[in-house]
Every structure is written in structure tokens, then in C-alpha cells.
Design a protein around this nucleic acid. Structure first.
Lengths: 345, 345
DNA sequence: TCAATCTGTGCAAACGTTTTAAATCTAATC
DNA sequence: GATTAGATTTAAAACGTTTGCACAGATTGA
């Protein structure tokens, strides 16, 4: 019979539970010989400490939680996969694991978060897709829960831990690159949902334009509901059919940029000869859609890894001032951008 | 002060712990009035039972586990996201949650599975990407662990629970469709790794061909290492540059089919005029790559939902005969297939 | 009036671990 | 040979929950 509990292991070794526990923990005060003997037996019998017992006394579960809101019939990118992979990488290095708690239809995400934390299943949580004003943040702060946000609030007097991608910088970089290529008339296809990253990226672009100071610069901004494919196409269409068409269009993220590319080729424009297009995220389809979308890699996995590291730090060292981290996206140049068309130079 | 534990809640209500516990569980023997009073207080104070305490006494954690092996620098599709979403959907309906345990570099997946189960963190596990011969299955059976496999072994005298996509049927269907369109010379781009789905799909195709009985039928099979992009391209190239070229090529999965499409257009073939291509999986890029890849939707999310339901069933009703479930993939017709070129008819 | 039944509640054990405080053993010192 | 200091080990409590069993009070039947 294989000892499955500490008690069984102890009686098999003719030691007390306490000694075995301490020996396994590598406690100094236990004789080296005993430690070795215990370690050997534990290995031999494949003893694995019960999570429940340990959890009960330590008050920690070793888990980090994240909610999973089921959306849409089918995921269009690998964001979720990349994110959990990154979290997993960051967590496992520090001996933690990840809980994915699905928010059922008609259930509130806040409730799920609360249960996760209050039941002790998770020592902390990661929240993603932060909106401009996000009740989850206030809620978690009020609750005194340990958490890290992937993304930022638009503005908040309260401090919290966050990791984010530097979209403002990326969009400024996109502008600089396109400006160098002779572009002067820009288009931005953005969304109407109140997500913070929308502001940050647009501000990054606008800031770069105004810093540049060239009076001939022009920026057309078109807005569309995020999940309405028809509206997206229409918005792209309008951007492309303006009396004076931009020579370079930036999509708030790749899906929008890809829509622009599709619409552009539908009306007979050649990319990048007639139009430059740049996206953000570097989803898989960006490489497949001709002629290959130039975009910024959002480094989702790295963000998640950072978030995991930060959260474990928050859990283990509470009471520190909030931590923040800006991850730099990387330009992934493909073939959808090029010099501005001649007549526009 | 908010009662956080049963004891506190009980003393606040002037009841015993036992009564409160039973009242919350909706036990018959507790007076209705008491039950209501307790429920109200619990709701009011936001009491959430501690997972650890419950787990310790019930022996169940309410978690289902899955390992996450970090592979490649970047995910190319949404498989992982779809799969965990499906699992989440299936689990949350039955009051369970998901643990994602990352397999760290140099760590064995078996070890992670063992810890997951033996520590009591997970009541059961789901394993994916089953190889022809997969040590995880034997291991879990020997261990007496409750598990469900997404995918099958090539052959096994031992029974276990599995959910799988019916790739054989899909490939047979692809053949039938292409045969109707006049195609007689087929190509299959497949992988060299010993994964069971490779056999099942290829057998499905070969079976349909032999059932058809047309002696003019021909099938070229080309094999390539799965993760070697260069080799994939080369294999596609060879398939396309054979002395007599197939008029229809089926990719074992979309990435391979997309590679075929890229290579085909590189050497000046027009799809579907000169060549029909069909894939499997329906990854996002399949819709973006011109002219749009005809493929089978692998219904990953549905598989995962089934797997979750099955696993919970296995956990709650042990000792039943093993369950199996074949999910039907759905043809997603786009523009990459069409009538066979004239000269071949 | 007393026993028997029923209804509602409480006591206490059990789950497996960690940890505080105390006990035992060993060796060394006087 | 007694005392002490140091080195190991152990007993017992605590964590929060569920649940078998027992108990008190009320109701019923004889």
C-alpha cells in the first residue's frame, strides 16, 4: 500500500507527521540523515502533498485566476491562446498555476471574480480588455483583492497594478515611418467602443503628427462598431472613397487594417503602390492576406508573462506601491506599406 | 465586521455551524424559516465558502485540469483559445472550473499530470494532441485517474474515454465533392509526425477512393515535418511540380493547404481554375488567404464542450464503461475548389 | 401520565497540512 | 554523577467545511 498522506508516510518511516512535513520542506532543524531518508521515501512512493490541507493552513492556493467571457461564435485570433500561454510561463516559474473561470451566460463577471478570490481558489486575479471606465478595477481595489490589469483605465485617481502594450509609441512610429516615405494624408480606422487602447493609440498618432509640425498633414478618422463586420466594411469604404483619399491608412488593429486592404483591392487599388496600410497586433492572418500586412507585434505573450510575474510579486509582497509596466510592440514590416503615390508627393 | 467563515456567520445568526452549513446546502431537515434567514444573511454579507475546507472534507476540488505545453514562439491559430473556451463552457454549466498547468521547460508532462491529480487540485484531466502511441493514456489508466482524451490512439487494447473529430469522414466527403467536380488525380500533403489524426484522415480519403472503384483515380501523397516551414514549402513544391500534376490537393490541415495555395500562385497557377485545394480546421487565415480556402470546420469548441461534459460525467459516475464521441466537422465552402481543368477531364 | 414519534438543532469528528511550543535525546562540562 | 547546552523530534492546535449521531422540545397516541 502506497502512503498517500503525510500520516501514512510518517508511520511508515516511524517518524511523526511534523518531522516528515519539516523534512520535506527542507527545514534546517531536521537532521540531514532524516531529511534524506524522508525525501527518498517520498520520491519512491510518489507522495504529493494534498492541496486542500496545505491551502487550509497557509491560506494560499498557489493559483492565479482569470475570467473567461465567452464571446462570439468563433475566435478570430490567437489572443487568448497567447495570453494564457504567457501567463502559464510566468506562473509556472514561480510555482503557481492558472485557473480559468468561465463566466456563464447571464452571470456577472464581477461575481465570478469575487467567488474566485473569496473562496480562496485564487490568490489573485488578472483582468484583461480594460475599458476606459472599468468597474472591475474599482471593485477589486475596494475588495482589497490582489490583481493585475492587462490594459489601463483612461484616467483614474486610484492606483493599481497594470501591464500594457505601448500602443501610443507604436502609432507614432508608424507615422514617422510613413512620413519618411512621403505620406502626408493619413487615415485612421478606429472603433466606437470605449476601450482605452483606442485613445492611447490615436493620441500617439495625433501627438506625432502635431510634433512633426508639417502644416500639410491631414488625418481622417473613421469610426465603426467593433463587432459589426458590415459596418467595418462600410467605414473602410468611406475612408477610401473620400473626395481626397488618404495615401496611408492605419487600422486600430489588424482586423480593421485587413478590412481596409480587402476593400482597397475590391475597388481596384494596388497595395502598397496606391495605398499603404498598417495594422496592430500581428495576428496570423496578417501574414496570409496579400500582400502581407505591415503591423506591430503586440507581444501578447510577453505582456502576459510580465503580468504573471507582477501578480506573484504582488501576492508575495503586499503593501508595496503599485507596479506598472509598458511593453514595447515590435514593428513587423511586410509588404503593405511603401512610398506615397507620386501625384501626392 | 463581515463574517467570512461559517463560524462567524453562525455566531452572528446565533446558530451552530452545522445548522448554517446545512441551511446553505438546502437540507430538508432545516426549518424553512431558518433556511431563509441564513440565505439572506449569507447573501447580505457576501459569504463564500472556503474552497479548502470544502475540498478537504469532500475530497473533490471542483476543478478539471489540462496541461499546457509551451510550443513555438507564436501560436498560428486559435486552437488553444477555442479549446479552453469550449472546456470552460462545458465545465461552468456543471459547476466546475478549469486549471491550466503549464509544463515548464525540461519538466515532464506526466509529472505535471500526476501532481495535478494526486494533489487533489484536479478531479480529472483532459489531454489533447494524442499521438499514435501516447504514454499519457497508459499512465493515466494505470494511475486510475479520471480523464478524457481529445483524440485517439492508433490502436489500443485498453479502453478509455475520448472525444474526436471525424476526420476520416471529412476527407471522404472532400473526395466525393471533388470527384463530382471531375477531379481524378489527387494530391495529399501530410505530416511525418506520428499523430493519429494523420492516419484517420488519410484512411478516410483512401477508403473513399477505393470505394469509388474508378480505375483512373490516382493519389499522390507527400510528407513533411510539421514544424519545418521550409520543408513544407518544398513538399508543396514537389507535389505541384510532379511530371503529372494533381488537379486537386488536400492539405492534412489548413496550414499545409495554405502553403500549397501560396506555392501554386507563386508558380503561376490560378486557384481554383488550375488547381483545387481543400484544407481542414478552418483557421482564421483560411478566410483571408485568396481566394479563400475551402475547408472543414473542426468544431474545436464543440469537441471541448463534449469533452468537458464527458469528464464531469466520468468524475461523478465512476465505474461506467468508457465513453466515446465523434464530432462531425462541417464543410466550409469558399473559393479554392472548383471543376477540374478541361484537359484533365 | 407516560411513552413514542417527529421536527429542528447542536456536538464533535474527520479531512491533511503547517507550525508553535514543548519534550526528548545526546554529548559535553563541571 | 549531576547539570547544562545543543540537537532533534514530537504533541497538539489551527485552518473551514461537511456529516453521523445525539439531543431537546413539541406533538401525538394510548
Amino acid at each position: 500500500m502506497r502512503p498517500k498522506t503525510l500520516k501514512e508516510l510518517a508511520s511508515h518511516l516511524d517518524l511523526s507527521i511534523a518531522t516528515v512535513s519539516r523534512a520535506l520542506a527542507g527545514h534546517e532543524r531536521i537532521a540531514q540523515a532524516t531529511r534524506d531518508r524522508v525525501a527518498k521515501a517520498a520520491r519512491e512512493f510518489g507522495y504529493v502533498p494534498s492541496m486542500a490541507g496545505r491551502m487550509l493552513v497557509s491560506g494560499r492556493s498557489g493559483f492565479v485566476g482569470m475570467t473567461l467571457a465567452v464571446r462570439g461564435p468563433k475566435l478570430v485570433d490567437s489572443f487568448l491562446g497567447e495570453f494564457v500561454t504567457g501567463l502559464g510561463e510566468g506562473l509556472t516559474e514561480r510555482g503557481n498555476d492558472l485557473i480559468l473561470a468561465t463566466v456563464a451566460q447571464g452571470q456577472s463577471e464581477l461575481d465570478v471574480l469575487r467567488h474566485l478570490v473569496d473562496s480562496g481558489r485564487a490568490d489573485g486575479v488578472v483582468i484583461t480588455r480594460i475599458a476606459e471606465v472599468d468597474q472591475r478595477v474599482d471593485y477589486l481595489i475596494d475588495r482589497g483583492a490582489r490583481f493585475v490589469a492587462h490594459g489601463r483605465l483612461l484616467e483614474s485617481e486610484r492606483a493599481y497594478n497594470w501591464v500594457d502594450t505601448d500602443g501610443a509609441r507604436a502609432f507614432a512610429e508608424a507615422f514617422d515611418m510613413l512620413y519618411q516615405l512621403g505620406h502626408r494624408h493619413f487615415g485612421l480606422l478606429t472603433i466606437s467602443e470605449p476601450m482605452t487602447f483606442r485613445h492611447l493609440r490615436q493620441d500617439g498618432l495625433a501627438g506625432a503628427i502635431s510634433r512633426c509640425g508639417d502644416p500639410s498633414l491631414k488625418l481622417d478618422v473613421m469610426t465603426t462598431p467593433r463587432f459589426d463586420r458590415g459596418a467595418c466594411i462600410q467605414a473602410a469604404h468611406r475612408l477610401l472613397n473620400a473626395p481626397e483619399r488618404p495615401t496611408a491608412i492605419i487600422g486600430l488593429f489588424d482586423e480593421l487594417a485587413l478590412t481596409v486592404m480587402e476593400e482597397a483591392s475590391r475597388i481596384g487599388l494596388s497595395i502598397p503602390r496606391d495605398l499603404s496600410v498598417i495594422g496592430f497586433d500581428n495576428i496570423a492572418a496578417a501574414a496570409y492576406a496579400p500582400p502581407g500586412l505591415t503591423t506591430f507585434d503586440a507581444s501578447i505573450r510577453e505582456c502576459a508573462r510580465e503580468a504573471a510575474a507582477m501578480l506573484v510579486d504582488v501576492i508575495e509582497n503586499p503593501g508595496q506601491p503599485p507596479r506598472t509596466k509598458l511593453v514595447q510592440p515590435m514593428l513587423t514590416a511586410r509588404a503593405s506599406h511603401g512610398p506615397a503615390p507620386r501625384k501626392h508627393r
